[in-house]
Every structure is written in C-alpha cells, then in structure tokens.
Design a protein around this nucleic acid. Structure first.
Lengths: 357, 357
DNA sequence: GTGAAAGCGCTAACAA
DNA sequence: TTGTTAGCGCTTTCAC
C-alpha cells in the first residue's frame, strides 16, 4: 500500500541508482531481470525501488525497448461475446509482466483502423485485433512492424496469426438440428450484404454461406430466405417483425448471432406468436441465452478460450516465432426450448396437431 | 487508405522535416497546432506528413509533453452497465485529438490499483476510475499527479471529480413502488458485508442503507431481510434459491443490481414460483431487462451520460480547472411485469385471491 | 517566423 | 559483475 503504490511523482531510474549507490544501467538490468547482476546488488536496488516507490516510465522504455503492453482492439462492448474474449485475455496475462490495454473502435469512425493505429502509436509490443472488417492487406503490412493476432477472421494470412471458431461446423450443427426437428421454412437473419460478402472471411459471411449450402443440400434451395437488417444488432427486431407478419412466415429463424436473436424473440412476442409457432436460434452462446425467460437455442463459442489463445499466440510471436499459426476452436450446439418442431401448416389447435402424427 | 494509414514503420519527425525542407521544431509546431507558423509552412509540412505517412510517437511525446491519451479503468466488462459508460466516454471523445484506452482490472489482482497504476505508468493525460473499492486517500494522492475522475463513488473528495447516480433517490423510488403495490416482506439481496459497509460511498452500500431506512420509515423494521451472496453477480441465484425455499419467503426481492436480479429471476423459476408469488426488482436498467421474457422492474441509470460527463470533467481538468466538481445524475424507475401486487398469504388459488379484495 | 540545441527517462553496446 | 556512454523521437526554450 505504502511507497510502492505511491504516485508516479517523478522518481526516475537516476534517483534509484543514487539511493542504491549504483549506476543507472545496474538498476535497468535489475528491473529487466537481465543477465549479469549479483544477488547483493539486486537486493540493494530492489530495496531502493521499494523505498522510493519507483515506477519505470513506459514512455521512456518504449523509446528504446519494449513497453510490456499488449493492445487489443474491440469493435463493440455491447455484444457480450467480446467481454468474454477480454476476460480470457486478461486471465492469460495474469501474473505476467505484460499489461493489456483495450482500444475501443469508435463506431463513428473508420472501422477499427483508428483504434489499431492508436495502439501501434503507443508502442505496444503486440496487437490483437477483433475488427472483422479491417483489410487483410493492411494487417499484413502492420504485421511487418509488430506482432499481430486476428480473432474471428477465417482467411489465412502469412504475416499474422488467427484465432477463429469453426463457423461452418457450428452452423451445420445448428441447421441439422432445425431440419431434424422438421423445419423446412428456415429463414436466416443477417446484416447488410456488404458485411457478409462471400469470401470475406467474416463469421457472418461463413454462417450465411453455410446456411445456403445446407438448404441446398437438403433440397430446400427454393426456400432459402435471407432477411437483412440495416444495423443487425439493433435492427433485427424490426426486420424480424416484417418477416413474421409477412405472408411467407418461416417456421424457424436463424439469426447470425445472439444479439439479433434476442431481437427476433422480442418480435415473436410482439407479433403474438409463441415458440411453438416460430423457432428461433442464435449464435455465440451468450449467458443470457440460458435464462429461463429466454431459453435460446444457440451455438456456443468459447470466447474466453479464444481470448486466452490469442494472447498465447501473441506472446509466442513476441518471443520470436515467425511461422504463422491458425487456431480453430470448435463450437458447441446448445439446444434450448426456443426451438421446437414446427406446427403443421394451417393447423391452429392442439387437437389437430395431435391427430397429425 | 494509402500512406496515411501505412504502418508506423519508423518515419520520424526528422524525415518529415527533411522532406519538407524545414526544421524539426517547425514540424513539431505544425502537428501541435502551436503558435507561430506561417500558412505556407503549415501546408508544406502537412503535405510531407501525408506523403510519408508520418505518425508521431506517443512514447516520445510522453517524455516531454502530453500523450493525448485518456485512461479508463473498469472492474468488469461482463456487467452490461460498464460498456454503456465506455460508449458514452468514447462518443464524448469522438473527433477530439484524445484517444481512450481501457485498462481492465484483473479480478485475480488487487482491486483496480494495478490497472490504474498501469495507466499512469503509460503517461495518460487523465484517468477515469470506476473501481468502487480503491481507497479515496490513494486517489487523492494520485490526483496530485494526474487529473482524476471517479465514477460511482458518493464520498466527495477535494482532489478529484466524481460522477454518480443518485442511488438513494433511485432506491427510494423503487421501494415506494414495492410498498405501493402492497409488499411488506421485501428482502434485499446484496454482496458480502465488506463491500457494502455503511459510509463506504459505494452504490451497493447506499442502496442497502436506503433499503433499511425505507423499511424503518414504513414501520417494517422487523421485516428487514438482507441476504448476502458471496460473489453477488454469480452467486445471487444460489442465495435467492435459499431465500425462496426457506420458511420466511419474502413476497418481493430487491437485488442490488440487475445482474443478480437475473439470477433471482432464474431462482424464482427454478423454485417453481411465478411473478405473482414473488416480485423481483433490480437496479441499473440494462437492456435485457426490457426483454419480454425477462421484463424486470429496475432503476435505470444513464450510463452513457455518466461516461460522457466523466470525459467532459476530465477534459476540463486537463484544461486547467482545479476546483472539484461532483455531478449527480438522476436515475429513473422503470416498472415492468416482474413486480406485481403480493398474493395474500396462504392463498394458493385464483378464486380465493379474487375474493380477497 | 524559423531553426539550433538541450534534454525527457530509459536501454543496450561496450569498456573497465 | 559493474559503469560509461550514446542515442531513441519528441518538445521547448532561446537565439536568430
């Protein structure tokens, strides 16, 4: 509590050296745990540091060597999946000399470029990027300067590492579940098409693409139904409402992730429908999906593990690895009561439904 | 996209000066918008900067002047209230030359001290702290070095500014609502007692204190019922389950914030009870509380506004203000279907309940 | 209005 | 094993 926590004041390495009666270099070596210091000196210096409450200036260190800072860029904190990533990353760094700083991508500005650049400007020793929309070419260029790990992009790049969840497998598992329940009219709710372009490597794009593929394979190509929401996290409710009150009401809606899925559930309620009439599924496995009032079927991604993995890869890079690594973590389907067998067309009563099978 | 975004490479102020045919000092003045540069020079330098894709090194700047970085320390991202704070802060900074960086407090380590210290070590121009548990004395000491704004502590300090929500008013409004509905056996679910010590200035402490006061004022002092959860965010479910299955079941449970309230709702469901039997209320006004499957009565705090306000106060401090400011923002009660009039004791059927009034 | 020069606190060669 | 020294890229007087 006392001196060691005392304010940064302006006690420099010089002061410590004087106090301990050694040279600045000696102090530097001690704090960096560098080779060639006698235990005696180490102790003297440590005592002086403690005594004076010395804290090395990260700025000054950054000018010559490392900052012991890792930067992570995050597109939005409102989606509960991202905090999970952060929790994993923070945990992985616990006890290490590295400190994590987060740069939030300002939604009003250019898609994460600014935030990543801000991190680099601050001389971080490595960058974790979560923006799905930054261009791979730009990242490659960046990776030539500083170690980079990208989370959630499927395209493999040589310059940097990637950590992704297997969105195709997850989507297939979910679609299989819906088909097995007997659903045929399955709609997919996703974002605007510029964010889901095939080949973009963005999770939403993979999910859309896999949805299409599975529908085709199941002979339901003519029932492919893709609904687009302008801002999918907030706009899903509106889009779903149109979808559900339209003539061609699907029996199941698969939303590209859990946040819009919550909007769809809300729309189901607002349209006076129930889970027996419209099944809803999401993607991510956010905690609230398990709440009894929600009970959303979803594909769980282990965000914490992904965050941890990203940090591990980054530290490896910093330690010298140069061959790229690409880690894929397997998602799990979690079935809950938001998905049920479809009610036969046109039957509205329990009796008829019973007689149907 | 091109040069200006190009990697930080190692183009220095020197390179820009050479390219523009001026001195380093001149370039420095231009990028700092300092007094005494001719428009012609400004233009020449700007062109060179653009041309070379020059980015000033924050580390180097930090050694002499400012870093144009504001640091915010956050205890946990999992609670959706905090991302709101961040959204407000980010928005307030949009377009300014300042960049926000977030230091997550590692739950495994000392309560935010480390994270705040990490920020200070990085020479931020100001600090926003959200940890309710750091000692005011320590913050005062810190504030002597760098401008500080604390969010969510009620104790006033001279050295730094504070932004809080009026927890007493919010709690009174909520309690009034429950009492008006007819509830008498109202339990309060909160965290361990060391986190809710009276006079600590922590929101949870104020809410607890106000709960007690209102109960007394209503002549219900003997029915005060405070349930403690070990880790309130995750442990609320368990504690609530005990509370609801015990002999003295309350008719209403007021949780110290929305996350535990969700746990209580889950416990209500798990115990086979309904909203008619147990009313549940929370505090914060997180989005999901409005979902039809949840419909939680809560006290909304305008987190975005609080984040914005904190940034404004901090910028004022940086610009030179020294008198402390303490901003209180008023919370709003949001009534939803999770709270209803209590069912008369011992009556289990609709008929009896009907006859009762 | 512009440039030269002196550091800010630290690290990394190299010398001792 | 320890100390000396030369910068890292920038800001900031202070001359010109």
């Amino acid at each position: 509590m006392a001196a060691s926590r005392s304010s940064t004041g302006s006690v420099t390495i010089e002061d410590v050296a004087r106090e301990a009666g050694v040279s600045r270099a000696a102090v530097s070596k001690v704090i960096r745990d560098a080779y060639g210091v006698s235990p005696a000196m180490r102790e003297r210096v440590a005592a002086a540091i403690e005594q004076l409450g010395y804290r090395p200036s990260v700025s000054a260190r950054g000018m010559r060597g490392k900052t012991f800072t890792l930067g992570i860029e995050i597109p939005e904190l409102s989606n509960p999946f991202f905090p999970l990533l952060l929790a994993g990353a923070t945990a992985a760094l616990s006890g290490s000399p590295y400190q994590l700083i987060i740069a939030p991508a300002d939604p009003a500005h250019s898609e994460g470029y600014r935030a990543i650049q801000a991190l680099v400007d601050r001389q971080v020793d490595g960058v974790i990027a979560v923006s799905p929309l930054v261009e791979p070419a730009w990242l490659t260029e960046l990776a030539a300067t500083v170690p980079v790990v990208m989370i959630g992009r499927h395209d493999r790049a040589d310059g940097y590492d990637t950590v992704v969840s297997d969105d195709e497998a997850g989507t297939r598992r979910l679609m299989r579940h819906l088909l097995d329940l007997g659903h045929r009219d399955i709609a997919h709710l996703t974002g605007e098409s510029d964010r889901t372009a095939p080949g973009s490597g963005v999770p939403q794009a993979i999910r859309l693409q896999t949805y299409r593929a599975v529908m085709q394979e199941a002979g339901l190509g003519d029932r492919v139904n893709v609904a687009r929401a302008v801002d999918v996290a907030t706009g899903a409710h509106r889009t779903a409402l149109q979808l559900l009150t339209g003539a061609e009401r699907p029996t199941a809606v698969f939303a590209c992730h859990d946040e819009p899925a919550l909007g769809v559930l809300r729309a189901v309620a607002d349209a006076g429908l129930t889970a027996d009439e419209v099944s809803v599924a999401g993607y991510d496995g956010i905690d609230i999906a398990g709440h009894p009032g929600i009970s959303l079927t979803t594909v769980r991604q282990d965000g914490e593990r992904m965050g941890r993995l990203a940090v591990e890869l980054l530290l490896e890079r910093i330690t010298g690895r140069t061959e790229p690594r690409h880690e894929v973590v397997g998602p799990d389907l979690v079935v809950r009561s938001s998905t049920r067998p479809p009610r036969p067309r046109g039957t509205a009563t329990r009796l008829q439904a019973l007689g149907d099978h």
